[in-house]
Design a binder for these strands. Structure first.
Length: 144
DNA sequence: GGCTTCCATGAGT
DNA sequence: ACTCATGGAAGCC
């Protein structure tokens, strides 16, 4: 487990030397100091407003999660989609999609924060404050 | 228009 | 069986 100090607070992640298995927002015990690895490199670029190819990630657990990942990665930086839209492209239902998003172990890397409810912000596993900051950050990037 | 209910829905546990 | 990070319709003011 490692920690990356983002402008919005610490971000922890599990990097085993080959792949990233999980990433979480906020503090968590047992984390080691930062070290150089593809995840840290990617995060640093992201918060600088740059986009790099994704680091190697642990595979999704279910076929649906794999399709969900692909659909999420198709949403461009700074843009949002609704649960309903995403559900339609997946042939699923909005509610099931929301639950699957909450099970995403790799937030930011897999941009689940770009999915919002039709009339509101929707939810976010690590708190809406993070979601708002991430979306604002991406909006700022587009303006530069 | 802005509420408030109700319920179909599908993935995960 | 039960839980949802929803959406939509229907009813009401």
């Amino acid at each position: 487990m490692h920690v990356f100090q983002s402008p919005y607070g610490p971000i922890g992640y599990a990097w085993d030397g080959r792949r990233c298995h999980a990433l979480w927002l906020g503090n968590r015990t047992g984390a080691r100091p930062p070290c150089a690895n593809p995840v840290a490199t990617w995060l640093e670029a992201y918060f600088d407003g740059e986009t790099l190819p994704l680091p190697p990630l642990a595979p999704a657990h279910t076929p649906f999660q794999m399709r969900l990942r692909a659909a999420l990665l198709a949403v461009p930086l700074g843009r949002t989609a609704t649960y309903g839209e995403l559900a339609r492209t997946l042939g699923s239902s909005p509610r099931a999609t929301g639950q699957a998003l909450g099970a995403n172990r790799l937030p930011i890397l897999i941009p689940c924060h770009r999915i919002v409810a039709k009339h509101g912000p929707g939810g976010f596993a690590f708190g809406l404050a993070w979601k708002r900051r991430l979306l604002q950050h991406e909006k700022d990037i587009l303006l530069r």
